[in-house]
Design a protein around this nucleic acid. Structure first.
Lengths: 348, 348
DNA sequence: TTGTATGCGTTATCAC
DNA sequence: GTGATAACGCATACAA
C-alpha cells in the first residue's frame, strides 16, 4: 500500500479508531462497523476505512472491546515448570489450539522465586480471563473463590477434586489405572522389592498414581518403598536413585536395594534411569527396571527408551479445548483421559 | 473474612468498582483511590473498601485501566516450538522474570497448522502489548511496521537484523564466535571431513552459526558438507545423520562419511547423536564427533553428555528483561550474549 | 447507510 | 478527604 521507501508516520502511541475515522472521513461508529462482522456498512465506506486502517497500521483494541463483551478472549494458563518435557509439549499443543480458536494464552508461571503464588494467580483475574487452566501446581481456595465470584471458569488438569460446587471442568487421566499398570508391569518383570518416586507436593494427581501403584503391589505381596521428597524434577529422580539403589559395600550402611522403580512422571523416571545407568553403573533393565508416567517426547528418544504409562497429549488437549469452549453458564464436566502402557526397553 | 460455610454470592459476571462502592457506601472514585498507590484516602474509608472488595472478590480491571495508561502490562512472547528443550527453558525463565516485574506474558505460538503467521503476530497488537519478544521464527516486515506505527517496542532474540530504524532491541549471542569455537574443537579432535546441520529456514541467526563454522573450516582446509533442510527439530538431526553418516556397503552408493558434525541447535545435535549411536551403531566420539549449540538442560544429562556451545540462559534472560524494562521512547540497544565451549563427551 | 449519544470499568481533574 | 465529571477506545441502540 505504502510506496517503497516512504516514511511511516509513527504516532508513538497506538492508533485508534478515531485516527482512522479522521483519515477516512467518516465517524468513529462507521469505523467500528467496518470491523464488526455482519455490520451494515456501504462498500465504498468500508473500502476507504480499510485502506486508511492499513496505512495507519490500525488494529482493533480488543482490550477496550472486552469492556462490552460478556467474556474476554483471554485464557489464563498456569504452570510451575514449563521446562518439564511433558508440560512444555502440553503448552505447545494447547497454545496452538487456543490460537486456532481465536483465543489468547495469558501465561502464568507460579514458580518464580520469592513470589506469592496465590496473589500471582489472583492477578490473572485482573485481566478478565474467561477461563483459568491449571496445568500444574496447587489450586488455592482463594483462586477458586475468586473465579466463582467473578464468573470465570476453571479447567483443572490432573488436579485434585476441588470443593463441591466449584465452577471447574475436570480433565483427569486415569491415575488409578496408570499406577496399577505400572505395578503389573514391574511384577510381570519379576521384581521383588520396588519403589515409587513422587514429588514432595501432596496437592496433585501424582499422589494418586503412587497410591494405586502401592495398592496393587500390596495386593501382590511385593514390598514397596515410597520416596516422596523434592520437586517434580529430574534432580528428584536422581537423588531418589542414589538412595534407593545404594549397593552394599564396606563403607555403606544397611543394604537397601530395589529392582524396580516407578517414577510418577517421566522427568523423575529419567532422572532415576540415567543415574542408575551412568552414575551407579547399573544395568537397566538388567539390575533394575524403571517405568515412568506421561510419555514425554524425549522418553521415546533412543537415548532413553523409557517404558512408561502414556496419557495421550492429543486427547488431553482436545478435552481441554472442549472444556474451554463451553458456554459461560454451562454445567461443569469431567473428562477422563485414557492411559496405556508403552513398552520400550527399561523394564525386564 | 467470610464465615466458614457461608454461601458466596456469585454474580455470574466480573465484580466492578461500582459494586464495591455500593457495598462500602462510597463513590467509585474513592474505590479507585483505595487501589491506587499513594492516593489520598482516609483510613476508615480504605478499610471499609478493602473489606468490601475482599468479600465480593473484587479485582481491579487492568484492561480498563490500560485505556488510561501509556502502556499496558502485557508483553507478547512469540515462539514456534515451545517444546524445544532450550526454548522451553528460556520461556520458563522469561515468564518468571516478567511476573517478578509485574508484567504479564501473552504467549503466541506461530506453529499452528494452517494459520497465517503474519496475522497471528499482528493480533498481538490487538491486545496492546507494550513489547513483542521474538524467541524464534521469522520477523515479518508487517509486524515491524505495525509495531513502529503503534509505538510498541520489539525485542529480537537471535533474529537477523531488522531494517534500519526499526524500534527493536537486539539480543544476540555471538554466533560467529560460537560457530568458530565449534569448528576449532572439531579440528582439534582431528576431524578430516565434517558437516554442519542447520534447519531449512533462512530467516534466523542459526545460519550465522553455520556460516562461521564453514568459514573457519575453509580457513583450515577441512571440507564441510552443509545440510540445510527441515525444521529446527530432533527429527532433522536424525535425518541428517542417516544421510551424512551412511557407511559404505554393497548396496549403498558413493561412500559419504563424515567424522564430525555440528548441529546448530542442541535439539538437532541430539538427533544426530542418538541416531549415530543407536540407529547406525556408531561410536561417538570414536567414529564421529558431535557438537551442538545452546546448552539446553537435557544436553548435560548423562544420557547425552553433549559437547556444545553454551549461550548463558541467565545472561540471555537478564538482557531480555533489561530491554523490556526500557522506557517507551528510549533508543534501541544491542546486547551481545557471550558464548563458550562446554566440554563433555561427544567430541574426541 | 450513517452519525449521535450512551455505556463498558477504569483513572485523572476538578470542585467542594 | 471526597464526590461529580470527563476522558480512554470501543460497540450499539437510536435518530436521522
Amino acid at each position: 500500500m505504502t510506496c517503497p521507501g516512504s516514511k511511516i508516520a509513527a504516532l508513538g502511541r497506538f492508533v485508534s479508531a478515531a485516527d482512522v475515522a479522521e483519515r477516512a472521513g467518516v465517524s468513529r461508529s462507521t469505523v467500528s462497523r467496518a470491523f464488526t462482522p455482519g455490520a451494515q456498512v456501504s462498500k465504498s465506506a468500508r473500502h476507504r476505512i480499510l485502506a486508511a486502517a492499513e496505512e495507519l497500521g490500525y488494529r482493533v483494541n480488543r482490550l477496550a472491546r472486552t469492556l462490552h463483551q460478556e467474556r474476554s478472549d483471554l485464557v489464563g494458563v498456569v504452570g510451575g515448570n514449563f521446562a518439564n518435557p511433558y508440560i512444555s509439549a502440553q503448552l505447545d499443543a494447547l497454545s496452538s489450539a487456543l490460537h486456532a480458536r481465536g483465543l489468547q494464552c495469558l501465561l502464568m508461571n507460579t514458580a518464580r522465586t520469592g513470589g506469592d503464588v496465590s496473589e500471582d494467580l489472583a492477578r490473572l483475574l485482573d485481566y478478565r480471563v474467561r477461563t483459568v487452566v491449571l496445568l500444574s501446581g496447587a489450586t488455592p481456595d482463594e483462586l477458586i473463590r475468586l473465579c466463582a465470584q467473578n464468573g470465570a471458569r476453571m479447567v483443572l488438569i490432573n488436579r485434585p477434586h476441588p470443593p463441591e460446587g466449584t465452577l471447574a471442568d475436570l480433565i483427569l487421566c486415569d491415575s488409578a489405572r496408570g499406577g496399577r499398570l505400572a505395578a503389573e508391569r514391574l511384577a510381570q518383570a519379576g521384581c521383588r522389592k520396588v519403589a515409587v518416586v513422587v514429588s514432595g507436593s501432596r496437592t496433585s494427581a501424582k499422589t494418586a498414581r503412587a497410591d494405586a501403584f502401592c495398592a496393587e503391589m500390596d495386593r501382590r505381596g511385593i514390598p514397596v518403598t515410597r520416596w516422596a521428597d523434592g520437586a517434580n524434577s529430574y534432580q528428584t529422580g536422581a537423588e531418589a536413585a542414589r538412595a534407593l539403589l545404594a549397593r552394599p559395600g564396606p563403607h555403606l550402611g544397611p543394604h537397601i536395594e530395589h529392582d524396580g522403580i516407578f517414577g510418577v512422571t517421566d522427568e523423575i523416571a529419567l532422572g532415576v534411569l540415567n543415574t542408575a545407568r551412568f552414575e551407579l553403573g547399573l544395568s537397566v533393565p538388567g539390575d533394575v527396571s524403571v517405568i515412568g508416567f506421561d510419555d514425554a517426547p524425549i522418553s521415546g528418544w533412543a537415548s532413553h527408551g523409557l517404558t512408561t504409562i502414556r496419557q495421550s497429549l492429543e486427547e488431553l488437549t482436545r478435552a481441554t479445548m472442549e472444556a474451554i469452549k463451553r458456554p459461560a453458564g454451562a454445567p461443569t464436566t469431567r473428562f477422563d483421559v485414557p492411559v496405556h502402557l508403552v513398552e520400550r526397553h527399561t523394564v525386564g
